[in-house]
Write a protein that binds this DNA or RNA. Structure first.
Lengths: 110, 110
DNA sequence: AGTATTAATTCTACAATGTAGAATATATCC
DNA sequence: GGATATATTCTACATTGTAGAATTAATACT
């Protein structure tokens, strides 16, 4: 049995973005989704590096190349979350929630 | 304005543990609280290193030395979360939740 | 064909955080 | 003082976070 791993803070956001974006998930859209929802500023480098690392850990998978992008530019590289990726996300979210449960209301945390 | 920072995954757990433990928060109890609630295995090194780093970022504060520990052993070093620490926690939790919101039910994540 | 324009990804580099385990310190008791 | 108990500090390295410049690939235009 491989030791259970947990997602880093940013890795978590990236995987969540992939899940929400579904079919339309690729570097640029992941970045804007995170910016849009969290309001935080995110560099391309951060996103692509993280996507690569997640892929080499098999938490994410990519299918490259797009048929015909009607307008110029490099082809997109689409990503999707693997089953293992979803598991890692669940595990991570579970530990966060088990620790936060209770104090959230006491300290009126979100 | 200093750029908004976010807590790392483990830093988050440690701060949460401090909040729950209140008056009784110190290295050893933080470790066991995290183990107990999340079921994950946690080394002392991880906890103390993180606590130190959080302190140097002023997200946490420590008051050292205990009056009379009725039974032998080195004195405890107690920790508490600063206002900035609570803020960082809120910010971090907010971005996690804003990204997870919606998919949690769709993917039956915790 | 050659060049400009657009869209997106890859590379490079370094900072911050995660993690373990041995070593060390401090206190009590006999 | 030596044994025992309790807790923290140190050392070292692996993984994750983050930014921005450079590069690649495609289309459109002249």
């Amino acid at each position: 049995m491989g030791r259970e791993k947990y997602l880093g803070e940013f890795e978590f956001l990236v995987i969540a973005a992939l899940l929400r974006l579904g079919k339309n998930a690729y570097g640029v859209s992941v970045r804007s989704e995170i910016k849009k929802r969290t309001g935080r500023q995110v560099s391309f480098g951060a996103v692509y590096t993280t996507l690569d690392r997640l892929e080499s850990k098999s938490l994410v998978r990519s299918r490259s190349g797009e048929a015909t992008p009607s307008r110029g530019g490099r082809p997109k590289k689409h990503f999707e979350v693997t089953a293992r990726g979803v598991d890692a996300m669940k595990r991570t979210l579970e530990s966060v929630q088990s620790m936060v449960d209770g104090i959230d209301t006491a300290w009126n945390l979100p």
